[in-house]
Design a protein around this nucleic acid. Structure first.
Lengths: 340, 340
DNA sequence: GTGAAAGCGCTAACAT
DNA sequence: ATGTTAGCGCTTTCAC
């Protein structure tokens, strides 16, 4: 690989002039500039960005911590990030952490060791906290070079991008209530997830509003996988007084639930309605097509990246909380409660 | 951020000793080592990896070129890459290229400008070719710091990881033939993809073997999306003599096809059988569950990364072609041809 | 408008 | 066992 010195030699100028020609051409006379450009071409010179970045202290890399890329929703979020990152000349370092704290800490270290400028976390966990109990200066805690999106910490020390999960869950529950359902179950995610907490809260809000008593047994735990939806639906169906509608915390679980329901010989939505959350591409292709809450997944990614870049460039003094809109998408999987 | 000099000052040793303590502790006396370690802690010192890498000329970054992360199959491949990369202390730079040559060239440039050591391409296209018509030395063309996986160039100048797509398509077609089908359609991918070419070849192999004439009209083009499967199935069903089985080049298209078939009032597999390719997680949850070809997606990723690292470390003199196994997974979407 | 030289943080000869 | 020093490729004062 040729370096700047070789170009300088070929063009018979100093290295400084070569650097200037490439960085601030106005400072160089046209004649010299052409000479240099010719030499650059002749040498097949490509600036070593490692060196540039080392010197500038900016890597132009962003770490993305995602529980699983293999999740359709997250894949869309990453797609959006990619788009915004590329537009802003940043590259994305992918950290598929499987929700493992240590793995996350390892990736967070990339920021601390100047391999990346900042980090985007899609889970409610501060990957830096484990790394090192931040130097306890008496100063106000500085803004971490991080953005927390989708599943967000309650007191995130950084900008956040969220959906109003509580309102969304409430909207879906209201839809089900309006169809005459009174036994509405919910297949939820991991109990300690803020996502689950907010969505369950929204579900309860709607129930209370409608004067329908909340029943603990109608809350069935899942882990966002197809299998867990299948499993949870089985449990719900086995109840003495089974639900007439099941609201799932994501589309995968809803798809799993639908399969289980059909296997029991029941019809969706004639016997039991099913709703999901996310509106992944497959949601429109289930049988029947899935009623769900659409989230602007790509926009989550784009917004997160833009915010992070703002933080890195010092354009932000306070950590904003961006709330993205949701959309209730009614398809065929929800219908009037039996006997309505 | 503290640097090595500060630590040296604190520990009252030279910078070299600090470096050695961290890199080759055996060369340093226990006493000095402890002194240094204490200083490292006191200073909150984290080596600047940008500097380390700049100096070593190795970035420990790998660029991954993927047409779309939002594709379930690719997401699994990336998952596997991530795993192998992390094991080997490499990080993955994600390039969601949307199959755009220019975008790919831009990412390829990251390798040429020392932002990444190598590249993995999941599409049949050489991202370096566009970048610069490789210096035409008379030397034998060197091994590019690249691995081509999944969809592979015919004459890839690098290691490749593939499935025997022809054999897999043939196996699926044989399965359909064995069920008595004679009008077997295929919803294929983009015509110029080697994937499509090989799979169609395998399909024709099996047909010929069984003495079933090939019919051009039974080949319907798609683009691997749910929608395109839906569309293509509609076209096939409108044929004067429609097929009794449809083999789709991926699961998404199969899922789209199934929806279309049901909308026409036909039953799967009683009236028409449907088969897919990939065995994505959703395949087991369609109604009926999808017969498909399982590909070891994660293994594609792992193998590609390992091969690339071998190339980078100069362990490979020739470019190997690794062929991964497939598995015919028979579920409920394929059954005896009507009237059997 | 151009060149000389310092220096980013680190490692690795080479000395001692 | 430890220190001294050169240098990775580049940018950026500071002179001229």
């Amino acid at each position: 690989m040729s370096n700047i010195r070789e170009v300088a030699r070929l063009a018979e100028v100093s290295v400084a002039t070569v650097s200037r020609t490439l960085q601030q051409p106005d400072l160089v006379s046209l004649k010299t500039r052409n000479k240099v450009l010719a030499a650059v071409k002749a040498a097949g010179y490509k600036p070593n960005l490692m060196a540039v970045r080392f010197r500038s202290g900016k890597t132009h890399n962003l770490v993305v911590l995602v529980p699983t890329v293999a999740n359709v929703f997250f894949a869309r979020v990453i797609s959006g990030m990619q788009e915004a990152a590329h537009e802003n000349q940043y590259a994305l370092l992918l950290g598929n952490t499987l929700g493992d704290d240590e793995m996350e800490a390892a990736y967070a270290k990339m920021v601390q060791t100047s391999q990346a400028d900042g980090l985007i976390q899609l889970r409610a966990h501060n990957p830096f906290s484990a790394a090192e109990p931040a130097e306890s200066n008496d100063e106000a805690p500085a803004l971490l070079p991080m953005v927390n999106a989708c599943e967000v910490l309650d007191k995130a020390p950084c900008p956040t991008v969220v959906l109003d999960n509580r309102a969304a869950a409430s909207a879906m529950t209201e839809h089900l209530l309006a169809l005459g359902h009174r036994r509405i179950a919910m297949i939820k995610g991991p109990a300690r997830s803020p996502l689950t907490r907010d969505r369950v809260a929204g579900y309860r809000d709607a129930l209370q509003e409608a004067g329908v008593p909340f029943a603990e047994e109608l809350l069935s735990p899942g882990n966002f996988s197809l299998q867990s939806g299948y499993q949870a639906a089985g449990d719900l169906l086995a109840l003495p007084d089974p639900p007439t509608a099941i609201f799932c915390e994501n589309d995968e679980m809803a798809i799993g639930a639908i399969q289980r329901i059909k296997q029991q010989g029941l019809r969706v939505p004639a016997d039991i309605s099913v709703a999901g959350f996310d509106d992944i591409s497959f949601a429109a292709f289930t049988d029947p097509p899935l009623t769900t809450i659409a989230q602007p997944a790509e926009e989550f990614g784009r917004t997160a990246v833009r915010l992070l870049i703002d933080v890195l460039e010092g354009k932000l003094s306070k950590a904003p909380k961006v709330i993205l809109p949701f959309d209730l998408v009614i398809r065929g999987s929800t219908g009037p409660a039996p006997g309505q």
